[in-house]
Amino acid sequence: MKNSVLLGTLAFAGLAAAGASAATLDDVKARGTLNCGVTTGVPGFAEPDANGVWQGFDVAVCRAVAAAVLGDADAVTFVPTTGKTRFTALASGEIDMLARNTTWTFSRDTDLKFDFVGVNYYDGQGFMVPADLGVSSATELDGATVCIQTGTTTELNLADYFRVNGMSYEPVPIETGAEAVQQYLAGACDVYTTDRSALAAQRAGFENPDDSILLPEVVSKEPLGPLVRHGDSEWADIVRWTLNALISAEELGVTQANVEEMGSAAGDNPEVNRLLGTEGELGAMIGLDASWAKNAIAAVGNYGEVFDTNIGEGTAIGLARGLNAQYTDGGLIYSPPFR
């Protein structure tokens, strides 16, 4: 008797667990909010503003997905994660998706059982040093003390770079970017290394940004993008195509300002019509409303607008589009067609 009750409970728990992993879309709809993992705070990418509202380049991806799925860009619960806690949070189902400048690597995609749905920022690892250190190239860093965020790919790239160049260094492992900056500014390490976008972002927040320089070397490829759990392809599709919708919108000239007008009735461009749901059944195919992409674009703007308002050259962070320009402008940002 006791046994059967127990087995019943176990079976139920097992089913509940399996259910949680299978249909993320249903869970999100039932919950009414999207649980999105972000950083603990990188200016421009994900950081709460003075009113406690999360803002940033990665945050916009979360908001776009929430707008596409739930029709409300504010229906997001942001879960700050560190380099170490992010994968556990995603794997355990605590968050539905992770948008936290996470590098798409082979082992994360296969061995850790995640699905990267695309790339929203092409980055590379760089080095920041104080200008008065008198170093102009990373090859002069033999013997230096280097601050690194533990649990990231930068840690491994750093070890490889110094080994390949026959140089030694003293690693100072640090948990979060904020602590690393604190150590760097206190002079407890000579060099701070992480993705160049994050270096630029953090340097912009310094009291005297000109006292620090970024070295020219880019020692790795860091394609950063949102990711979801392995095994729920429908949900992965939703996140992937929401990101693609933002990218296509820029390519097709759909902006936050004109999306309402363009989406109100079918226009001349069939691809815009399909994207905004005035033609075809794309929404039904992905399991969402016909206006899913329109909602996402209306909430955060197209990819270019998201870039410009958060990290672009007009902001304090001042990143150029570079590799992150549309393919039509010589960049790598490219969305498959909406067809």
Binding site: K84, R108, D111, T150, E155
Partner: peptide
Amino acid sequence: IAVGYMDLTGTLGGITLNQTG
């Protein structure tokens, strides 16, 4: 780990755990 001293929790329970999953 709070101060980045590489003890057992820092290596095996920290970086190794995180890099291998």
